[in-house]
Nucleic acid binder design. Structure first.
Lengths: 338, 338
DNA sequence: CTGTTAGCGCTTTCAC
DNA sequence: GTGAAAGCGCTAACAG
């Protein structure tokens, strides 16, 4: 194989080839109207010939700012709901020519801290962050540098800058009340890793509040361990423990777990929803693939990303953008509950 | 709300505060061993006080290159298999301090062209591209500038630089032969949008070749339309048409379609696998959630990303890296085939 | 161990 | 319509 050397032509080479100075080439690129048509033609030809690609780093440095990138930090790309948010964000940014830079925190706060600092050094024009709880250090840093920041997937009255999401507490509360309304009396709750995931924590609060209001017993609360993307097997594995509490329904904080539990219930000959009701969270594609189809909370992943993108863009332009945008969730009743 | 102004402190401010020149601050950041412990302490304090975040753009410009970023272009983040590739790539890059910049092409070649040009202007140190067919313009550009490039998810003898993948033709061939081995005689093939997806095209070739070898009839080939991420409903919607061909088995180029078809078959009272065998491709989580569990081709998404990352890194360091890395796929026999 | 001098590749004035 | 000078924020190379 021939040796590959990096070889980015510079504007100067284009200029020489076209018989002008770099200044004219620069102008040809950013305000072609100000360049004589004939000159323009020669410059365009030279660009083609050399394979010139502008150096955005130099450009941004010189122009004092915007490389037109937005940074998004999500727990994992594996989870479909965050993927949705990314898709929504992309959709909002693309028409304006902004690029998306993605980081995965792995649900780890320390990793988020590291990534914020690292990405900040690239001077992005905006940030999308998942969740609303984070280290004071990162909060301060972000506040101080003054880039537009959107926190997502939860609500708060004290965002760093803006927040786009819904109330996880309310969502879990609503589902629990709904379950109670269907006649379930012993509703168990199985949460994802709540130490590292405030969404799970808020859902638990909503669940407890609903039970209290309804005068129902709070069963032992189960938490699935590892701070990682949820796995179907996790839901299957925890079912036996949960059954020891004699629940007539189980509310999982993720469809993924719920699906695993339904499968495990079938293996054990437990009829869903007849003997045991099961509810999930997120409304993933998998929810309608499992039999019986899963009752769940539909959550607005894509919209969150889109609105977040629009808000960041507005801020960049100096237009007003709402500090808090609440996006509605909804309960989707299907066949895994009576 | 108080007005937010961008306000990134510069190295000069840190230097002044610490009573040194910028050079010493720069050194304190990149080779602290060369700075007096006491000076270092003062500089660190000043950095903390000011909330200084290095400007990587300026740094890269000056140091003549590496912003330590790798760009990955995938069709969509929605598809779990590309998400796996991203996760694998991240895993390879993280330990070396490289960042991942992600672009979604939406399965569109023109979009890829635009993104390559746009991202190239940020001078990434490497590229991961999905698939091996692309516009000559983009090929030339990438070859010319000499950044490390890995093409993925297929094999070719003429990569731009390197390729990491498997043979989609072979994979489909193997599955088709396996199906024939189970006694299926009329094996239908349903493909994703092949105009924009060469993986689908190659799979079709493998399917045809296998049938020919086995002396089995090639049924009408069905293609699912839209160039977008596959949807479960697409598989359900196309089933009736496919059934008109009287197949005893259907091989879908994605588990997603296969799952939709299984559901539709159930609705129509068709027994799977008894009356109709169904096979998929990718081995997504959904494949073991559907009942009957799906026979499919397991494809090494995560490994592809990881190896691609390792290869790019090797190239960057000037170490040798293989031009072609073939990663094995495998047939996973489950319950949707007899 | 620390400072000085250049200069990365481009864009912003301000001239011509 | 085009060019010359200055500088974006940082680092490499050399001095001291």
């Amino acid at each position: 194989m021939t040796k590959r050397e990096k070889n980015f032509p510079r504007m100067a080479e284009v200029a020489k080839l076209a018989g002008v100075t770099v200044m004219t080439v620069s102008r040809a690129l950013r305000s072609p109207a100000k360049v004589a048509p004939d000159t323009l033609k020669r410059i365009r030809a030279a660009i083609d010939k050399t394979g010139y690609v502008p150096n955005a780093l130099a450009g941004a440095l010189s122009a004092g700012g915007g490389g037109k990138t937005i940074t998004a930090l999500i727990p994992t790309v594996q989870h479909a709901i965050f993927a949705d948010t990314i898709t929504g964000l992309s959709a909002a940014l693309r028409p304006e020519g902004y690029h998306l830079v993605l980081g995965e925190t792995g649900y780890l706060s320390e990793e988020e801290d590291a990534l914020v600092a690292a990405f900040l050094s690239r001077r992005p024009e905006g940030f999308l962050l998942t969740g609303v709880t984070r280290s004071p250090r990162t909060r301060d840093l972000l506040k101080r540098v003054g880039v537009p920041v959107v926190e997502t997937w939860e609500l708060t009255n004290t965002p760093i800058d803006m927040v786009v999401g819904y109330s996880n507490e309310k969502a879990a509360h609503e589902m629990t009340v709904w379950l109670a309304g269907r006649g379930y009396k012993r509703i168990a709750f199985v949460s994802g890793p709540s130490r590292t995931n405030e969404r799970a924590r808020r859902r638990e609060i909503g669940y407890r509040r609903a039970l209290k209001e309804q005068g129902l017993p709070v069963l032992k609360i189960f938490t699935i361990g590892a701070p990682a993307a949820p796995q179907v097997e996790d839901g299957a594995a925890i079912l036996p423990e949960v059954l020891a509490e004699k629940p007539d329904a189980i509310f999982f904080t993720s469809d993924i777990y719920a699906v695993g539990a339904i499968q495990e219930a079938r293996r054990r000959g437990i009829a869903v929803p007849k003997e045991l009701g099961i509810a999930g969270f997120h409304d993933l594609a998998i929810a309608t693939v499992i039999e019986p189809k899963l009752t769940t909370v539909h959550v607005p992943g894509r919209e969150i990303g889109y609105i977040a993108g629009r808000n960041i863009l507005a801020r960049i332009r100096g237009e007003p953008a709402p500090q808090l945008s609440a996006i509605p969730f909804s309960i989707v009743a299907r066949d895994s509950t009576k």
